[in-house]
Amino acid sequence: MTKESLKTFKKSLWVFHMNTGSCNGCDIEIVAALTPRYDIERFGMMLVGTPRHADVLLVTGPVMKNMEDKVKRVYEQVPDPKAVIVVGNCGATGGVFHESYSVAGPLDKIIPVDVYVPGCPPRPEAIIYGVAKVWLKLEEMEGKK
């Protein structure tokens, strides 16, 4: 193995997608990123069914009050090194739901967030670009080790 490749994040990124109350707009764009037109799976990324297999937590939607503890629990279940992406503006800041009585707050008040993908919903390629940014972070963490 060359020194160069040591710097790369060695695993394929596996992603756990969690919906905390979004309108489905972002969710279908995430699925669209997996399907032939954008095909994110060519980078070895895939959606997995449980957080314990995942490297990246992908969250969509504002966090509802009764999803608050579930998000925390899922975040703790993701093994280190991990990263969190928020897709869509309502997860980042509340967006159109900003004065709702059942929203617990933007995601970064609840768990640490690494990358924000603004858009309502973002195009699939914007999500791919967001994943690339997460890649940077994971590589950085790998480099420090």
Binding site: Y129, A132, E139
Partner: peptide
């Protein structure tokens, strides 16, 4: 192929370097 290969065709050796 139907796929649009954004941002690169294959996984770059290092994403940091690539960007």
């Amino acid at each position: 192929p139907f796929t649009n290969k954004f941002p690169a065709k294959y996984t770059p050796t290092s994403m940091t370097e690539f960007l």
